[in-house]
């Protein structure tokens, strides 16, 4: 088993130091207190700043604990902010794929629709922002189950609710599907929620690669899938590229 990672130990020590006393310290004070070279301390502080755990006062240059650290226990990314940051790419995905686009996050065992772009055919459609959908029967929900341990933990053991003949019914089957999703990096739902409908989704990641939501398209199965009932490869690429573009804007490392 590998030993402790030195830079993480040092980062923890810096956070402890900032959590004490006045909570505002300069670079030299931090470096001196911990017996670190200024360059080393600066590198760690910059990384902590990037992930939002530390903030630097513009005027004095002093460091303090960041807002992200204070909200560690609550939601990582405000859903309205997620929509705001994703809106351009969601539009582009709808225009490119010709299908409706939705973005979803996990809320108490359900998939919450936080953004919806109409299918670009100018027919009458209704916004379903705020709607709750089943996790195990939707492409977006399965993406979140595959990558978000908390979401997965919220799924009850035993039989799953069936919405159609194709819905995944057992946790065992679901576990197998999720590992497949992690392997390929995207998920599909072919008539698992609604007969005649199919969808494709991919994860949206934030800092450090943390999955903060899922983004996908949905439409009639004959448009979304090929003659073998598999999602069309070009649509899968559009969805993955769009989710990657949002992730890049949110500060995710490239993958």
């Amino acid at each position: 088993m590998p030993g402790p990672v030195q830079s993480i130990e040092r980062a923890a020590a810096i956070l402890r130091l900032l959590a004490q006393g006045s909570g505002r310290l300069g670079l030299s004070e931090i470096a001196n207190s911990l017996g670190l070279a200024r360059g080393t301390a600066h590198g760690i502080l910059r990384t902590l700043q990037m992930v939002g755990f530390v903030e630097q006062d513009e005027a004095t240059g002093k460091y303090q604990l960041g807002a992200a650290l204070l909200h560690l226990g609550t939601s990582y990314l405000d859903v309205n902010e997620l929509r705001s940051r994703a809106i351009n790419w969601a539009d582009a995905l709808a225009a490119r794929s010709g299908e409706a686009v939705r973005i979803g996050t996990h809320l108490q065992g359900k998939l919450l629709v936080v953004h919806h772009v109409f299918r670009p055919d100018d027919t009458l459609q209704t916004l379903d922002v705020g709607m709750l959908l089943p996790m195990h029967a939707t492409a977006m929900g399965k993406v979140l189950l595959a990558y978000d341990a908390n979401a997965a933990a919220a799924v009850p053991e035993g039989d799953l609710e069936a919405f159609s003949r194709r819905t995944i019914r057992t946790t065992k089957e679901l576990t197998r599907a999720l590992s497949g999703i992690r392997e390929v990096g995207w998920a599909a739902d072919v008539e698992e929620t609604t007969v005649g409908e199919a969808s494709v989704a991919a994860p949206i990641r934030g800092y450090g690669g943390l999955v903060v939501g899922a983004m996908g398209i949905s439409g009639p199965v004959e448009r979304v899938c090929d003659p073998h009932n598999r999602p069309r490869a070009d649509l899968v690429t559009f969805v993955r590229d769009a989710a990657r573009a949002v992730s890049r804007d949110l500060g995710a490392p490239r993958w």
Binding site: A94, H116, V117, F118, P120, D122, Q125, L127
Partner: peptide, 15 residues
């Protein structure tokens, strides 16, 4: 022409 541009316009959301 302008008509060509109009064809690019699509409704993304409606309240």
């Amino acid at each position: 022409d302008l008509e060509g541009l109009r064809r690019n316009w699509h409704r993304a959301a409606q309240w």
